[in-house]
Every structure is written in structure tokens, then in C-alpha cells.
Simulated scan of single mutants.
Amino acid sequence: MFELDLRSRKPIYEQLVDKLKELIINEILKPDEQLPSVRTLAQELTINPNTIQKAYRELETQGFIYSQQGKGSFVNPNNESRDAGKVNSIKTELEKLILEALYLGVKAEELIQLIENLNASKGGGDSND
């Protein structure tokens, strides 16, 4: 499915959360698709099942997945992860990163072009304004 960098300073569960969010956002994992079981994924990645469970809990808290007792975890089709608080949080973080990029000498035109390229490749997003 994917690989984790065991030498990274970033905790393994955070890497796992980021990878799964990327797969969900890019629609590689489809709505209501079942995720691998904790045990299966732990064996596949050769990491502790508790680490997988922690990542799944975090994804559920963020609204990317949901769990059904006895059945497993599934990709959330309701887009609960797009709530207003999350959007505002992302905008705030983006603002900080853009200001840092401008400070480091990245031209505004480059940033605009990057956004346009990402928007074109993703097919655009819904406007919440």
C-alpha cells in the first residue's frame, strides 16, 4: 500500500495518518471502502498494532474514516473533514507557509502558478466563501 520512513523524526503514527489522508483526498481510497484491519496492516508494515490503532483513532477524530464494531474501519463518505473549523485551520496554516515562502524569496507568481497547477490536476474544489 505504502512505505513509512522508520528513520524519520516524525512519529510513525503521524506518517501513517498523513499517508492515509493523502490516499483518501486523492480518492485512491473510495468512500465507504474498508481499510485494512489493524492486524493486517501491522504485519504488512511490520509495526506495532497499537501504532495502527492510534492512527485510525486520529483519522476518525478528524472525520476521514468511521468504524463499525466487529466490521472494521471505512473511508467516510460524508466529507465531515471539510467542516468550517478545519477549513479555517488550514487557511491559517497556509497563510503562515505563504508568508514564510515570500520571506524566503519565492515570488508570488510562482505560488499562484503552483496553486493553479494543483487546482487543475485535482479538478478544483468547492468554494466555501
Score class of each variant (00 low, 15 high):
Asp5Thr: 12
Ala101Thr: 07
Arg9His: 11
Glu100Leu: 14
Asp129Tyr: 11
Ile52Thr: 07
Ile98Lys: 06
Asn117Pro: 01
Tyr56Arg: 00
Leu111Asp: 00
Ser127Leu: 15
Lys54His: 09
Glu60Val: 14
Leu20Gly: 03
Tyr66Thr: 01
Ser81Pro: 00
Phe64Ala: 04
Asp18Ser: 06
Gln43Met: 09
Glu58Val: 14
Ile28Asn: 05
Arg57Gln: 09
Ile52Asn: 00
Thr46Pro: 01
Gln53Gly: 10
Ala84Tyr: 12
Arg39Lys: 13
Met1Ala: 09
Glu93Pro: 07
Ile90Asn: 02
Arg9Val: 14
Glu60His: 13
Phe74Thr: 05
Leu99Val: 00
Gly124Ser: 03
Glu27Ser: 14
Leu114Tyr: 05
Lys107Met: 10
Thr40Gln: 14
Ser8Asp: 04
Gln53Met: 08
Thr51Pro: 00
Ser67Asn: 12
Pro49Gly: 06
Gln34Ile: 09
Glu3Asp: 10
Glu58Thr: 15
Arg82Leu: 15
Glu44Trp: 04
Gln15Leu: 05
Gly70Leu: 05
Ala108Ile: 15
Gln53Ile: 05
Glu80His: 08
Gln34Val: 14
Gly124Leu: 07
Leu99Cys: 01
Gly105Thr: 00
Ala101Asn: 07
Ser67Phe: 07
Thr92Asn: 08
Asn88Gly: 12
Lys21Ser: 00
Lys122Met: 14
Tyr66Asp: 03
Ile47Trp: 01
Gln43His: 11
Arg9Glu: 12
Glu116Cys: 04
Ala55Gln: 01
Lys21Phe: 01
Asp18Trp: 02
Leu20Met: 10
Asn48Ile: 06
Ser127Lys: 11
Asn79Phe: 14
Met1Asn: 06
Ala42Leu: 06
Leu99His: 05
Phe2Met: 03
Glu33Lys: 09
Leu59Ser: 00
Tyr103Met: 10
Gln113Trp: 11
Lys30Arg: 12
Glu22Phe: 12
Ile52Cys: 02
Asp32Pro: 03
Pro49Glu: 06
Asp18Glu: 15
Glu44Tyr: 03
Glu44Arg: 13
Glu110Ile: 13
Glu60Gly: 09
Val75His: 04
Leu118Lys: 10
Ala55Phe: 02
Leu41His: 02
Leu41Cys: 02
Gln15Ile: 06
Glu22Thr: 09
Leu6Asp: 08
Asn26Trp: 08
Val17Asn: 00
Asn78Arg: 11
Lys10Ile: 12
Pro36Phe: 08
Leu114Trp: 05
Phe2Ile: 07
